[in-house]
Amino acid sequence: MDRGNKAPNLYGNKKSRIYMDLKGIIRENALPYLLAKSLFRCAGVCRGWRFQISTAFFAHNQSNSFRSISGFFFQSLAGMPAFMSLDPRAYGVPDPSLTFLREPVDVRTSCNGLLCCQGRTAYRPYYICNPANKQWKELPKPDGDHGPDPAVVLVFEPSIMNFTANYKLVCPFPSELGEYKFEVYSSDRGSWRTSGEIRFDDNEKLLPKTGVHVNGIVYWLSTRGVTSFDLNSELCRLFSSNLENLGMINGKLCAACIRNQKLIVFMLTNPQSHTRRRAAVKTWTRILPEIKLR
């Protein structure tokens, strides 16, 4: 038999070109789409993968490639932060109780993997942290008094073209005269700034833990409907509604309510309209079929 004509074992030889090409394809095109818990395991495959995963550019690329929801942070009955994973075998964080922070904290808001927590001592500082790698930053003291349960909203929209991944923290707070002011912390400036926009309404109160950011506008449920604050124009609007929960679907603000034991979902179709304009423009449109709860 002529052994010189035998085809080489390309799939079994680790030095073959096919093996090297496949290894590079997985490293460059598959790893960025894995979640953090899986990446920690993949870091032990080889030295090249460990170096690739540890770079800042890879972390930036992974944050823009993997956008699935892995779980939810919540406050336990004992008052400690906790993480509820949608799949404990695949999703998780190293320290669900956030004990890597300087003090016990309360979780206030989150956005695309970042958490905003508030301390329980001193002036109750805000902390912005990444629970996946336990990195955190304490923000400077705000100028205004945000109260014991602030309606703060974290705005973090990572972009593949924005390597610095800046974020903002928006908090409405009532002043001594009763009107609402808006204070914004910007990570690129590293400081707070109070907007010149003031909302006068003695009968309105913005509800904590209801804020949602959609396309440059922050929305809150209030005692009079839905209040918005545009981060670019810094204009405040009020949308009349009797809805109960806010969220985002396909880049649009959505709200849900329960009527006659049925869950109904609406979408904001005209974000430029508000209660002061009596134009015959439909603000909310019902989407999705009604869901019977019983």
Rank of each mutant, 00 (worst) to 15 (best):
165 A>Q: 15
193 R>M: 15
207 L>I: 13
164 T>E: 10
223 T>N: 03
201 D>H: 14
234 E>K: 09
224 R>K: 15
220 W>T: 01
164 T>W: 08
224 R>S: 12
192 W>F: 08
200 F>V: 15
190 G>V: 10
172 P>Y: 00
175 S>Y: 07
183 E>P: 07
234 E>Q: 14
181 K>Q: 10
194 T>F: 07
180 Y>G: 04
208 P>C: 07
199 R>P: 08
203 N>E: 14
173 F>K: 03
232 N>R: 09
169 L>K: 06
226 V>G: 02
182 F>Q: 01
179 E>M: 14
167 Y>T: 09
188 D>R: 15
163 F>N: 07
235 L>D: 11
235 L>A: 11
237 R>E: 00
221 L>H: 03
193 R>G: 12
225 G>F: 01
210 T>H: 07
177 L>R: 12
196 G>W: 04
231 L>Q: 02
205 K>C: 10
162 N>F: 13
196 G>F: 10
226 V>D: 03
201 D>Q: 11
163 F>L: 07
169 L>I: 14
181 K>H: 10
170 V>I: 05
173 F>W: 04
225 G>H: 05
208 P>D: 03
229 F>V: 03
210 T>M: 09
213 H>W: 03
172 P>V: 03
211 G>S: 02
214 V>L: 06
235 L>E: 11
188 D>K: 14
212 V>K: 02
185 Y>F: 15
230 D>Q: 02
199 R>C: 14
213 H>V: 10
201 D>E: 15
237 R>T: 01
170 V>D: 02
214 V>N: 05
188 D>V: 13
167 Y>V: 05
176 E>W: 08
174 P>V: 11
210 T>G: 10
211 G>T: 02
193 R>W: 08
189 R>A: 15
229 F>Y: 06
212 V>P: 03
202 D>G: 11
204 E>K: 10
232 N>W: 09
200 F>P: 08
220 W>A: 04
222 S>Q: 01
168 K>R: 15
227 T>E: 00
188 D>H: 15
227 T>Q: 02
175 S>M: 13
195 S>P: 04
197 E>M: 12
198 I>K: 13
200 F>K: 15
216 G>K: 06
210 T>W: 07
192 W>N: 04
180 Y>W: 06
213 H>C: 11
213 H>E: 07
194 T>Q: 13
203 N>Q: 15
228 S>C: 10
229 F>K: 00
178 G>D: 07
224 R>A: 05
219 Y>E: 06
206 L>E: 01
189 R>Q: 15
170 V>Q: 00
213 H>P: 07
187 S>L: 09
187 S>W: 01
211 G>E: 00
170 V>N: 01
196 G>C: 11
180 Y>K: 03
236 C>M: 13
182 F>A: 04
177 L>I: 12
203 N>Y: 13
227 T>L: 02
178 G>T: 11
232 N>A: 12
206 L>S: 05
204 E>F: 06
213 H>Q: 13
162 N>T: 13
194 T>W: 08
235 L>Y: 08
215 N>M: 06
